[in-house]
Design a protein around this nucleic acid. Structure first.
Length: 424
RNA sequence: GGCGGGUUGCCCGAGCGGCCAAUGGGAGGGGACUGUAAAUCCCCCGGCUCUGCCUUCGAAGGUUCAAAUCCUUCACCCGCCA
């Protein structure tokens, strides 16, 4: 028995592990099923690392199944020990609440909530845990869990070796297991998706469903994304690439994908792109036949930026990149294009009438570098540009003549790090 | 509870009274080569009002002309014994 969805996911390298594959296929082929995937509010935004599972969630929905995206209003208060070698510090309830609502918006972009047949339903595990008493929890849920099994979970045993784990985090798998049971009861949800590090937590839910309801459900995990050079996917020097436009601008987001190493492009296309197999294979070929054009990189960047930030933002990000990296003179850009491009960059302002600060001070003010020393170093090392023209001398300061359209300056550090200055 | 070892810059890790803003590696940054790629090579890599000054070596005190280095107390980690 086969399923087009599973076959496609397999080809894309998106299946790390599943429970009984035959049973899973049988259920998927029998008609639309309900599945869920949870996100804990551990930060104000999701990041590109979360994109892998988010896109798989989307693929399941496109195949006709019904998604229950879950935000961990409760689990976020407790802290998942998976993949961590030390205890998390607890976040304030009000902060977690705020993060929950942000996550909700971000997740929403990937799913269709309006379909009458398989529209997504957002759930929050705080809804069924908030009013539960500790005694209820211990008697109704805890009783089904064997400490022996809990201890053998990777997330727990590795922590025991690494120095210990609190009772709070130890209990995490019980909470997540209970989520699955609750969704099984309320929505007949029978599949949980997650990253491969979630296997133990997902299985905890399957066991609970079996014991409490004599029901059967499935676990589906997605591989951890890696890069060919061994560095961590989704991180840059300046930190994670966030999905929140205020934390990572659409321009920076677009640039992140555009700068993907050639070696990673085929994998990224398969994992992230919703184009069909033939088109992806064609794009992969262009990386071989005409690498300089970077057509595949552009497609990847455009598609993902559109998905995460919307078409308008994506087009702007793309246009900004083209404008700022173009061979032509910056002054040849029309004012509107320039303004739109600069709006996406880290920026600082200077007031009319004030004397111009030095290039070093301006760059430091945009936040592109951490200190003035760093900015000075850039000048010393010949990586400092004003309006795409190299400048020398730490004391160099722009003048009125350098202003584009009387109000803009474009600072560049090195080959591709841009920042904007506006006179106001 | 006892004995011993440890805590150094983003990470790992040398230093064990002055020559220490502190060896080395990794990460990161700039340059060259390119394609806003990778690999490679060269350079840089605490901060500042920058030929000098200021702040760092778990925390707080102390000894000394001088401490990351010695002493005291505290915190945390890791071994061995109970």
């Amino acid at each position: 028995m086969t399923s087009a969805l599973i076959a496609d996911l397999e080809w894309r390298g998106l299946i790390a592990q599943t429970t009984d594959r035959e049973a899973l296929l049988k259920d998927l082929n029998a008609g639309p099923v309900t599945y869920y995937c949870g996100y804990d509010p551990t930060a104000p935004s999701l990041h590109v690392g979360n994109l892998v599972v988010l896109s798989v969630m989307r693929r399941f929905q496109l195949a006709g199944h019904k998604p229950l995206p879950l935000v961990g209003g409760a689990t976020g208060l407790v802290g998942d020990p998976s993949g961590r070698n030390e205890e998390r510090s607890l976040n304030d309830e009000s902060i977690v609440e705020e993060w929950v609502s942000r996550l909700r918006n971000q997740i929403s972009r990937f799913l269709d909530f309006d379909s009458s047949t398989n529209g997504a339903v957002m759930v929050n595990n705080l809804d069924w845990t908030k009013n539960m008493s500790a005694l209820e929890f211990l008697r109704d849920v805890g009783k089904y869990f064997s400490v022996n099994q809990m201890l053998s979970k990777d997330s727990v045993s590795s922590r025991l070796e690494a120095g210990g784990i609190s009772y709070t985090e130890f209990s995490y798998q019980v909470l997540q297991g209970y989520d699955f049971l609750e969704l099984y009861r309320r929505h007949n949800c029978i599949i949980q998706l997650g990253g491969s590090d979630q296997w133990g937590n997902i299985v905890a839910g399957l066991d609970l469903i079996r014991k409490a309801e004599q029901g059967s459900a499935h676990a589906f995990t997605v591989p951890l994304m890696t890069k060919s050079d061994g560095s961590k996917f989704g991180k840059t020097a300046s930190g994670a690439i966030w999905l929140d436009a205020d934390m990572t601008s659409p321009y920076a987001f677009y640039q992140y994908w555009l700068n993907t190493e050639d070696a990673d492009v085929p994998k990224f296309l398969k994992v992230f792109s919703f184009k069909d197999r033939a088109e992806i294979e064609r794009l992969i070929e262009t990386v071989q036949t005409n690498p300089g054009a970077r057509e595949a990189h552009r497609e990847l960047a455009r598609e993902l930026t559109t998905l995460v930030h919307g078409e308008k933002e994506a087009l702007q990000a793309e246009a900004a990149g083209k404008a700022l990296f173009g061979q032509g003179e910056l002054s040849e850009l029309d004012e509107k294009t320039l303004e739109a491009a600069l709006a996406q960059l880290p920026r600082t302002t200077i007031s009319k009438g004030e004397s111009f600060p030095t290039w070093v001070d301006l760059l430091a003010a945009t936040g592109v570098v951490d200190s003035k020393s760093a900015a000075r170093r850039i000048v010393k090392e010949n990586g400092a540009y004003l309006n795409n023209v190299k400048i020398t001398g730490e004391e160099f300061a722009p003048s009125t003549d350098d202003l584009l359209y009387g109000r803009f300056l474009v600072l560049r550090k090195g080959k591709r790090d841009l920042a904007a200055v506006e006179l106001i």
